[in-house]
Nucleic acid binder design. Structure first.
Lengths: 225, 225
DNA sequence: GTTCTGTGTGCTGTATACAGAATTATTGAT
DNA sequence: ATCAATAATTCTGTATACAGCACACAGAAC
């Protein structure tokens, strides 16, 4: 079973809203609710064991997050991203990551950089085992960590929001062995540039990396929405 | 005065949710609901003439937007932004606007650029009349328009989201006459650089402009949250 | 005088009820 | 058999009802 969630046991103690949000996000990311699907409040509420009221509140939250779209008198629909929109989002992510990388090279602590390296090493491990799911998660975690090194809350938040929207799409993309290998190699260069605090080089590698990410998914996407 | 019916007729045709969202945003931006205020659902619902159910849905939407904060068992509180957070957001806005400006110089249509110039001229008019409110709105519209020239939906959306959060803060800032004059001058340079499609120069001016915006508001802010 | 505890009030969180729009099924005519 | 019109059903949008938690205040114990 494809479990993309980073939920933990704490969820029982959090307000119901958070639990519903996690579940809905997972259902969307895992493809259980494919893009274009109308969210039937009655059915989902029954499935999740909650009434429509908190469920609707969660849906409104997701709408603001951009995962679903609200259509008057017709409820919520899982948002369908066209090729153009994905390209746009990846471009913004590229801008954010490049800038974050530059800032990180200038002011990140050595410990912070070591933390990214540690994630990278764990990712290499997953690559060696061909554990796609774990690799995928660590991959995202590394990009998130690099952004976090810039120590700018707004930057991290915006980046995370865009990354969430793309989770499903990037998860689908099952690249071939050689593309996977080159992605790993790029990551290695990335970490090296960060460790030597070479901002220009890191920015360049990140730019190339994100461009490749785009090329990797472009063909799997529906044409213009 | 605070009644949904006194806004324009269109509101009747839009879903109630949008109307509530607009009203709440306005109440927050205008300072009617100062940062730190607990949103009393009963009272606000009464004031707006709606029941708690759609109101709560709107509040969840605003929470995802970052204007309010949800506190378990204690409802929603108008988010208080500290100096650090505002600086972070302005820095991200700077990054986004600079990049948008560069793209705009490369690929905006002449008509698009002319549109920005038109907004600028109207803004100069407001400056001449010392109409602060109209000036303020056109100022924001110009920045939004420049970002829009990059023709990247995700970029515009992220920019708008951050700008919304800062609206209240920038709205408070009543700069003195000389600072106002220099801000106008900067805008003039900005438009000129855009018209001559000088990406480097536009980027530099935008960077300076946003840095000044930060210096203009920094003293009015509460210390670290 | 201070601290602790019990009670009351108000508010949030969730469920249910109801009205109206949208969708689907049905019936009748061509 | 196809299509139109209409009836039936489903689902959304909103209001209301109720349970439980949080905070405030008052009184008792020390």
């Amino acid at each position: 079973m494809t479990d993309l969630s980073d939920t933990d046991a704490r969820i029982e103690r959090l307000p119901l809203l958070d639990a519903i949000l996690s579940r809905l996000r997972d259902m969307i990311i895992e493809g259980q609710l494919p893009p274009g699907t109308r969210l039937n409040e009655g059915q989902i509420g029954l499935q999740l064991g909650v009434s429509r009221t908190p469920l609707r509140e969660a849906i409104k939250y997701l709408a603001s997050e951009g995962l679903v779209e609200l259509i008057p008198s017709r409820g919520a629909v899982v948002k369908q991203f066209g090729a153009r929109e994905v390209r746009d989002m990846l471009e913004v992510i590229r801008i954010l990551e490049q800038q974050a990388g530059i800032i990180a090279c200038a002011q990140a602590t050595d410990a912070g950089i070591a933390g990214v390296r540690a994630l990278h090493d764990r990712m290499l491990d997953c690559y060696a085992r061909r554990d796609r799911m774990a690799y995928y998660k660590l991959n995202q975690a590394i990009h998130t960590a690099i952004v976090a090194l810039a120590a700018n809350g707004a930057l991290s938040e915006v980046h995370a929001r865009l990354q969430t929207r793309l989770k499903r799409i990037r998860f689908i993309g099952h690249e071939g062995a050689e593309k996977w290998a080159s992605a790993v190699a790029e990551h290695e260069q990335m970490i090296a540039a960060l460790e030597s605090r070479d901002a220009d080089r890191l920015s360049e590698i990140l730019g190339r990396h994100l461009t490749l990410a785009w090329e990797r998914v472009r063909d799997d996407l529906p044409a213009q929405t």
